[in-house]
Design a protein around this nucleic acid. Sequence first.
DNA 1: CCCAAAAAAATGCGTTTTCATGTTTTTCGT
DNA 2: ACGAAAAACATGAAAACGCATTTTTTTGGG
Lengths: 160, 160
Amino acid sequence: MGTEPRQGDLNEGGDGDAPFVADYLLFLLASTSAAASAEFHAVVRAEGLRVREWRVLACLHDEDGQMTTRLAELALMEQSRLTRIIDQMHTSGLVERRSDAEDRRRVRVFLTERGAAVAANMIEKARAHEAALIARLPGASGETLKRLLKRVHAELVDGE
Amino acid sequence: MGTEPRQGDLNEGGDGDAPFVADYLLFLLASTSAAASAEFHAVVRAEGLRVREWRVLACLHDEDGQMTTRLAELALMEQSRLTRIIDQMHTSGLVERRSDAEDRRRVRVFLTERGAAVAANMIEKARAHEAALIARLPGASGETLKRLLKRVHAELVDGE
DNA sequence: CCCAAAAAAATGCGTTTTCATGTTTTTCGT
DNA sequence: ACGAAAAACATGAAAACGCATTTTTTTGGG
C-alpha cells in the first residue's frame, strides 16, 4: 500500500521529464468537456434521449428547418450518422423531414410540436445546469471561459 | 439563392427568441474541442494510430505502468474499451501488460521500447501542432485558455 | 442546350463502442 | 478467520458509428 495513484486530477509529475498531458491544450479541452458534460448527459439519458438527439433538438430550437449537412456540422456529427438519427427521431415523433422546394437535393429538418416541447424543456434544464455549474467555479471563470471559447472557436472555424 | 446559411460559425439569431447553443458552455467546450482536435487527429491517423491509441501512449509517456482503470479515466474512455485497445496495442507491439504483484486483480500497462519511441515522436508533433495553433489565436488567448481550463477541470473533478 | 462535375442526402457494411455480466482477487465487518 | 461485499479486469452480444459508395438533383463550361 501507499503506491496508489491519486484519484481524479491530471497527473503532475512524469517518469523523469516534463509531464505532457496535463499541459496540452487538446487534452485539456477534451477532458474538461467530458467532465463538464458527464453530469448533464446523465440528465439527457434519464429523459429518454441520447446525447446526439439532444444536440439536434437544441440546434433546431435555435433555427428550425435546417438542412442535413449544416445540422450535422452544428450538432457535431457525421452526415450519415445524422441521417440515421433523424430517422429515429422521426419514428419517435420529434422531427419531420421536408424536401426543399428551391433545391430538391436538400432535406430540411423541422421540429414537430412535441419535438419543440421536448427541446424547450431540455433547454430549460440545460440552462439551469449550466448556471449551477458556473456557480461552483471560482470568481468569473465560467463567463471568462465562455468568452474565450467563443473567440477561439471562431478563429478555428472561420479564420484560415 | 440568398437563403444560404452561413458556413462554419455558430448561429447567432434564432427563430424569435434568444439563441441557445452559441452561448451554452457545454456546446462551446465540445465544439471547440472538436474543431481544435480535428487537425491533429488527421496527423494521428496518418501515423497509423487511432485517436484513442494516441491518448493511451501520451498518458503512459507521462506515467508508465498505470493500472487499467486509472488509464481509462485519463485517456477518456470506458474501461472495457481500454481493455480491447490494449489488446490491439499489444498485438501491434506498442504496450505490454504485467499483473501487479501487490494486488493481483490489477493489470499494469507498460510501453514497449517501440511504444515509447512512437509516443515520444507523437508528443513532439503534438507540441509543434499546439504551438502553431496557439500562434494563430489572438494575443495570449491560448495560454489564458489553458490556465482557465486547468482550473475548471480541477474544480469539476476534485471539488465536489 | 448538353454533358461532365459538383453537391446533398441515403445506404451497405465492417468496425467500434457500450452495457450488462462474469471471473478472480482483495477488503472488511464480526 | 470466514463469508459477504467490493474492486479490477475481461468478455458476449447488441447498438452505434464512420467510411466508401450510390442516387438524385443542380451547376457551369463549351
